[in-house]
Simulated assay, not measured.
Amino acid sequence: MTSYHRRYAAGEHEAVWAELRALGPVPDPLREDVTAVAELTMRRVERHLDRIEQQLAGLDFAPAWQVRERPTTAGLAGLDRLAGAIGRLPAAYEAGLRVLGGVSFVGDCPALGLGHRLPAGAPIYPDPLWLPSVESLREEWEDYRADAAEYPDLATDGFYQGAPDEPHQAKVSGASFDLVLPDGCADPVVDGVGGRPGITLVGYLRTSVAWGGFPGWSFAPPQAVPPALAALRARPDF
């Protein structure tokens, strides 16, 4: 039987991920193969994120936070410890932490309709891509453990707040995108993504890349989409 990794590398991107999602918790004999698919996926995502980051610099983008928090040797060692403490992490999520690190396209950019005021005809929020770093995971895990110790009746089993939602990204009060950990699946569902119930992490990354890092614009009428966004968009190859 051809491995998932070989099939993925040969171009069966969507088919392979659909089959991996159907597995549910990844069986131990397949974990190495699934991890290889996830890492290759995130390396391809990284090329798109690097490209978008470079192009944003030419659009007078003023980031609200560090645009890329790339993985470090110390950070990866910390991730190993966290994975041991939390339990299994979804393959796509862990590969994202290891390959991409933290990513934030949150900020101000009039050419893309980003900031405190949205242009007429804009979607509710442009939804700039935001991915948590290992440090974010560590902080959330420590907060969870402290809450679980103080309020055991209120504690949940490894709940992790993964990213601010669209209102937070637009610098107003909002909720969050959420992952639930531990989880042994390949591609976790990301809860709370506006207009995209049941979307998985890989699915969200595909949508984000297809919309130049700002997938909220997909909900806007074509005439309202900023012309500058066209140069950032690309067909996902992962």
Rank of each mutant, 00 (worst) to 15 (best):
L181Q: 06
D33W: 13
L23R: 11
R31W: 11
E19C: 13
V190R: 02
A15H: 12
Y125Q: 01
A120V: 14
V180I: 14
L40H: 12
L201Y: 11
G102C: 03
L154Y: 12
R117A: 15
H5C: 14
T207D: 15
Y8Q: 13
R138H: 08
A155F: 06
S133H: 04
D237E: 14
L100Q: 06
W17I: 13
V16A: 14
V189K: 10
A224I: 05
F214D: 00
E14N: 12
S173H: 15
L229F: 00
A22Y: 11
L201I: 01
W211T: 03
A228S: 09
E46F: 10
L89V: 06
P132S: 09
G212Y: 03
A74M: 06
G198T: 10
V193D: 05
P222L: 02
G11D: 09
A220V: 05
V67S: 08
A220F: 12
R117K: 15
I199M: 10
V172P: 07
Q54H: 14
I124E: 14
P126K: 07
P119A: 10
Y204M: 11
R44A: 09
R47N: 14
A92T: 08
L59R: 05
D143G: 13
A36G: 02
P126M: 08
S173G: 13
F238V: 01
I86P: 01
Y8T: 10
G203H: 03
R31S: 14
A91S: 11
T207F: 11
R43D: 01
G58D: 07
H13A: 11
R70N: 04
L100R: 04
W211R: 03
A122L: 05
S136M: 06
A38P: 05
A18L: 09
D50N: 12
A62S: 10
T72Q: 02
R21A: 06
A9V: 15
P126C: 09
V225E: 00
F219L: 08
L59G: 04
A120W: 13
A230Y: 03
G158F: 00
A122S: 15
P221G: 08
A95D: 06
P25N: 10
A170S: 13
A163S: 15
L49M: 07
L100G: 10
G107N: 12
